[in-house]
Nucleic acid binder design. Structure first.
Lengths: 226, 226
DNA sequence: TGCTATACTGACCGAATGGTCAGTCGGCTG
DNA sequence: CAGCCGACTGACCATTCGGTCAGTATAGCA
């Protein structure tokens, strides 16, 4: 099915403007956060007047969501192609982490949007946007399934796939946050490897049999469940 | 040294108001985030008029920082006493994680302030508040030192103490976030134990010697450092 | 060259909000 | 009881900002 419509001049222009506005929105929202970003600023950044913005997006919220969705989509696509080359779980996990670290090294501005959106969600049912959530969840689900398969295959010990996938995402996010705050200390590859090592081997000493008495199998003491 | 000053009536009243305002601020900031929270609302929540707020705090920012600092201080204190009873690193780590999980189970509203403040920091040097940062860092440093000691003592394998401490913080934060978003699925103790297991043992299979060929020692592929 | 369609502009509007301050009022003192 | 003190109030001010729309400029066409 060839795309039947020859691209009209207006269509091209529209696509161009939408893209420029999206890129500007990513920069401005990334620098100021949603509330402190102004539509006026986004417009200037894209080289148009404020009114023009409203010819392409219905509201400030709409621009924000569009920018968020576009960024996540791009990240997801990169991750997909990279994961496709992975031969086993360890490589898959590495691909997941490394892709994200690299992506946000390039797109520092987008990272703030990416994480603060989650913070938004903690504040009650405001801001709930049903079409956004799947974009986050999709990534976790994919990793979760890879982990479940690896457990079945016996590649790793039996763990809760969902919890583990979430944990890997948390670690990745933390690593990226620290990199961005500290201004990229060590090369990305080294840090990613360090993380993989921790996830794979844990803290426990190898070889020497059991750890010192009393350190294994203790459970949480005094953790009230309420 | 007995506190020489008999608490004047005004002093008591001042302390009472400050506390009430702080509690109200935590609730309102926690529910709406900094920007969408209004001073008017905080005042109403505390049972006073807006003008009164400015008799006790100099600005909206000042209330916010005060609420943040007070919450972190309380969390830190709880962690300290709990860690003091721990006999080894595993118990220390458990104490760190469990204390936080329990604290934020109680103080859901404060968690949003706690995490979004970090998001704030990603947006350039605005909002930099030198007296706030140490409150976060202090917690990581304490855990980091405990890890370093455990390495020296041979309780765990040799790991980078700072990276590991950060990783544990990331995992804890993620766990709490998911608990709050999902509405407390499993009892806290089970989830904390699950996390400790992962941190301690990693994913690798035990006993069966080496993992399948080609899965060990591979390094990150194609991770550009730039 | 004149006409039209339309992408674009930016002055303007109304609502929201941080912060102020002149005035109120209840309780304490003499 | 009179008078004062200061904690408290809330109407008000100044500013910011999302969104609108009447008007402009320009490209394409006849």
């Amino acid at each position: 099915m060839p795309s039947t419509a020859p691209p009209t001049k207006t269509a091209v222009l529209t696509a161009f403007r939408r893209d420029a506005l999206l890129a500007a929105a990513r920069r401005v929202f990334g620098q100021y956060g949603f509330e402190r970003a102004t539509v006026e600023r986004i417009a200037r950044e894209a080289g148009v007047a404020k009114g023009t913005v409203y010819l392409y997006y219905a509201s400030k919220q709409a621009i924000y969501w569009a920018a968020l969705a576009a960024g996540i989509e791009e990240l997801h696509e990169r991750t997909r192609t990279r994961v496709a080359e992975a031969a086993n779980l360890r490589e898959i996990v590495t691909a997941f982490i490394a892709t994200k670290v690299e992506y946000f090294d390039e797109r520092r501005d987008f990272f703030r949007i990416y994480v603060s959106e989650l913070g938004r969600r903690l504040g009650g049912p405001l801001y709930q946007r049903p079409e956004i959530q799947p974009l986050y969840v999709r990534q976790i689900r994919a990793l979760e399934q890879a982990i479940a398969r690896a457990v079945k295959r016996g590649e790793i010990r039996a763990v809760d796939a969902r919890e583990t996938a979430s944990a890997i995402f948390d670690l990745t996010r933390g690593l990226i946050t620290r990199r961005l705050l500290a201004g990229r200390r060590r090369p990305a590859a080294r840090e990613v490897d360090g993380l993989i090592q921790l996830v794979w081997q844990g803290l426990e000493r190898r070889g020497a049999g059991r750890a010192p008495a009393g350190t294994r199998g203790r459970t949480v003491k005094g953790t009230r469940t309420r």
